[in-house]
Amino acid sequence: MGIMNRARIKSPWLLHFDCGSCNGCDIEILAALTPFYDVERFGIVNMGNPKHADVLLVTGPANHRNQRVLSNLYEQMPEPRRVIVVGTCGCTGGVFHNCPNVLGGIDRVIPVDVYIPGCAARPEAIIDGVVLALESIGAHGK
């Protein structure tokens, strides 16, 4: 593994976008950033800026309103980048699947690399998901 891959795995900066979830999974994501789980141990930092981010964490289902914002954020992230969906409603639509305004999972709008199911997903599962996404960067090298 080259030094670049090692650095990429050691330094994932997150962008967190809420597509209109019930907020349950957002709270779990933020819980992972508190001193109790302290994800900065792994070099993970929560960024508010797509231009600085390596990993996009999305919660909630895609709908007609937010798909534009979602793809805009995705396009502003420089490669290599990964998209992680947190929570069942982001994976498939979940409890919102038959709402008239809902398109379904996030993968209807942008390519998704890792799905983390759970309603709500646990912080441990979220950290595992980020690690999985990083391993895929390590494996592909881009």
């Binding site: 090692r6 650095a7 990429r8 050691k10 330094s11 070099g43």
Partner: peptide, 8 residues
Amino acid sequence: QPFYDVIK
């Protein structure tokens, strides 16, 4: 960590 960040 800062070196990882910059290299990345």
